[in-house]
Write a protein that binds this DNA or RNA. Structure first.
Lengths: 343, 343
DNA sequence: CTGAAAGCGCTTACAG
DNA sequence: CTGAAAGCGCTTACAG
């Protein structure tokens, strides 16, 4: 056994006194190998710490056994401001890949970058998982391009009609509806929504629509003046809430489009001398780990990252497999904590 | 041009009226190709959206053009509790890889898992970057194994003597020394240290040693009773601080071994009716994005994640290249914010 | 400057 | 059950 230079199937063949193809068969678990021979081969492989050469195998099999995760960043974000929610997604995607015996290639990209890199990934991987934030209108044409390319991909996001490719996302409408219904039940009537609510941010828009519908269900028309744009950062949430409060509009509830926004809003409320939840009930969206730890603990909508990661991987694998695949909406779960408890 | 089925260099050769090796040469930028021929080939390649098959290329070149990032998790952690600091590292490592034209394979692993998977990665990638938390004594033997294997790897962590492999880490001692010196300057005398301080967690231990040294420099002997174990989670920080306060030991400063711990400690202090910084000055370590956003904003020690990622990748590449490589300690920077400002 | 040849390590019909 | 043969797509000496 040579220490330097990895062992090959041919090395094993020599040592086992068989041909190289037989080694390959034994290693791949082919039934047409004599059990004794197989045992011998496997033993030697273990001793040599042999691993199949992925490149050679992929080249021959014509599939890479690799998926690529392309993480889109909003150019307005600096490196470190990634929403913890996406980290949970990264974790669950990684695990789902491992479960299916696939490797995961990870890359980060600016939304504005040319899509050349996508193609590059499509060449190294069997398919792409798209994840990230930013203006949907900007990413839409890139998706279109991928479709034309015949690239296999799935994306995390609102599953809306007329979208290029396969989208998997949470039931944002229902989540928004539930949380606003809850705030209404707590006696809130003037509920602010902090977060973008346009087609540029379809997930936030759906949450907002859920909010408006919940209000309507109680006969209340949502005041458009109580919606204020924000992206998913603590600072943006702080700023938006600040602006809203500075306007002097009376508010007794805040539904933030994400937990990070909610945490920023909480800080703004506190600085304005407003108590949460006594003066203003507060709720977020995502259920990031921090949500349970802030004080008061934050009421929020839990997105099922585990199922999300699994679905993304499994649907992508199905696509690669040539199956017809539809988008899917994942159920969400309300998590009620102190930040909204007034009764 | 066939839509289905990727174009190969042979397709291009046919269309360009040259041999396949000439295409390969042109694409790789070999100087021994007629400029006109090269232009033609490149144009056709672009039209066909051709990309070199990575598997074939790697197989032939005998290098994968891929690095693997192996993220170790403490089994006590649940999926979502990854320190934001590591996410910043992930970002900077990804970027450094891209810069050097390498792909990055990412996998998460329990510290306790068998190291089989490491070998697997070592087969798919040219080298491994190790990152994560957990008991160093546990990971140490795995590192040893990797060394014996001849696997190229670098790890993020305290660069101590007698370690297997190459380690790159922050100057934790200096960071601890600086922050405690600062707390002392703010008038603190009874400074608690929250975080593990044993050889099982060498980075925390170094921070603690820095703290003790800073105290000693002022003629103060650090009270061992003011050190309380904690791992890097908000909850653990909360619990540890809680316990410490419940003991009734008077405390006028807290140096938390990480920002997450500090944020937990802040919550515990608040619940005990202690004001930060008036009653207790507080400092953390890492400078995660949240540190600037909590109230009061958290004094901390910034680790240079950007340089860290670059160094990890560059040193690993050097190792792969057969060069002799040493570990390195990266300078840290104090970030003073309100949580420690008493004067 | 360019082509024919060999080979990276594997997998899988094709014969036996 | 097993071996000899072909070939995945590329790169690089080796000739010209």
């Amino acid at each position: 056994m040579t220490i330097r230079g990895k062992a090959t199937s041919l090395d094993i063949a020599h040592l086992a006194g068989v041909s190289q193809p037989t080694v390959s068969r034994a290693l791949r678990g082919s039934p047409m190998v004599n059990p004794d021979t197989r045992e011998r081969i496997l033993r030697i492989a273990r001793e040599l710490n042999y691993k199949v050469d992925k490149n050679a195998s992929s080249l021959r099999l014509r599939n890479a056994g690799t998926l690529a995760l392309l993480f889109f960043e909003d150019p307005t974000n600096d490196d470190s401001l990634i929403n913890p929610f996406f980290h949970a997604m990264l974790g669950s995607i990684t695990r789902a890949c491992a479960l299916h015996g696939y490797d995961l290639l990870v890359s980060f990209q600016q939304l504005s970058t040319d899509w050349q890199a996508d193609y590059e990934d499509s060449n190294k991987a069997d398919g792409i998982i798209l994840l990230g934030y930013g203006d949907y209108h900007e990413s839409r044409e890139r998706l279109q391009r991928l479709v034309e390319q015949g690239t296999h991909f799935v994306r995390w996001g609102a599953a809306l009609p007329d979208q290029p490719g396969v989208s998997i996302g949470s039931d944002n409408f229902q989540g928004g509806f539930d949380i606003s219904t809850h705030l209404l039940e707590q006696g809130c009537r003037r509920i602010a929504f902090i977060g973008h609510a346009s087609s540029h941010y379809p997930e936030f828009e759906e949450r907002y629509r859920g909010h408006v519908a919940a209000m309507a269900a109680r006969g209340i028309t949502a005041d458009p003046g109580l919606q204020h744009d924000a992206i998913t950062t603590e600072q943006s949430g702080f700023d938006a809430c600040q602006t809203l409060l500075a306007r002097g509009a009376p508010v007794d509830g805040v539904f933030a489009a994400s937990d990070l926004i909610a945490i920023g809003a909480m800080r703004a409320l506190r600085e304005h001398g407003l108590r949460v939840p006594q003066d203003v009930a507060l709720a977020g969206f995502d259920d990031i780990p921090l949500a349970a730890s802030v004080s008061p603990p934050l009421t929020t909508v839990q997105q099922d990252t585990k199922q999300a990661g699994q679905l993304l991987v499994e649907k992508l694998l199905a696509l690669i497999n040539g199956e017809a695949v539809d988008g899917q909406t994942i159920a969400v779960k309300q998590v009620l904590r102190e930040s909204s408890r007034r009764s």
